Computed example of a mutant assay.
Amino acid sequence: MIIDMTGLRQKLRERQYKVTPQRQIILQIFLDNQDKHLSAEDIHNIVRDQSNDIGLATVYRTLELLSELEVLQKIDFGDGRSRYEINETSTPHHHHHLICLSCGKVIEFEEDLLENLENSIAQNSNFTIVDHQVKFYGHCQECSLKSEH
């Protein structure tokens, strides 16, 4: 499924929410940065760099709303800041993340190695699993090379 502004606007309207200029700006930032996991502060900094006057409180409220509407997925990487990414509902499971403990970089990987384990858990526990998240913490290649020098 291709995620674009038209589909995102439609999702807001379907649930009786207005498509305000501030919401459109924030949605566009996510469309322009689909490979990143952005915090409210990251969004606010981008907005300020674009000379838009949107307060940090508005950014927080918009991110919470878009998360509740499942337009964005809220992710906690254990660094004290919630991060967000566009919620791609076309895949049965979300991608997984590699989180660098040195620089904070987040790298996505798509390979789902847990399918057999998930099926076994579901069967043995009579539990219907609808999703899972995997986060690996370590050091990215750049940080590993720096620490060797």
Rank of each mutant, 00 (worst) to 15 (best):
H139V: 04
E70G: 07
I86R: 04
L113M: 14
E88C: 05
E68M: 11
N119P: 03
K146W: 03
I43F: 03
F109S: 11
E88D: 15
A57R: 14
T89Y: 11
N52P: 01
E108W: 04
V47T: 04
Q10F: 11
K11I: 07
Q123V: 06
L72H: 04
S67Y: 02
K146G: 09
K105I: 12
H96E: 13
V134L: 15
V130C: 05
T128N: 15
R61A: 01
N52M: 12
E108H: 06
Q24W: 02
I25M: 12
L113S: 12
Q24T: 11
H93G: 03
D76K: 03
G55H: 14
D49M: 10
Q22P: 02
R48K: 15
T20E: 09
I121A: 03
E68W: 07
T58P: 01
S102G: 03
N126S: 11
E111A: 15
K135G: 10
P92G: 06
T128S: 14
S125W: 10
I121F: 13
C103H: 05
D32G: 13
Q10K: 08
H37E: 09
T89C: 09
R61C: 00
H139C: 03
Q10S: 08
E115N: 12
S147E: 14
I121P: 00
N126K: 06
S90Q: 13
E118W: 00
E14Y: 08
G55P: 09
R61E: 04
D53Y: 07
V71H: 01
K36Q: 14
L66Q: 06
I29E: 10
N116M: 05
R23Y: 07
I26L: 03
N87A: 10
L12T: 07
K36S: 09
D53T: 15
G7T: 05
I2K: 11
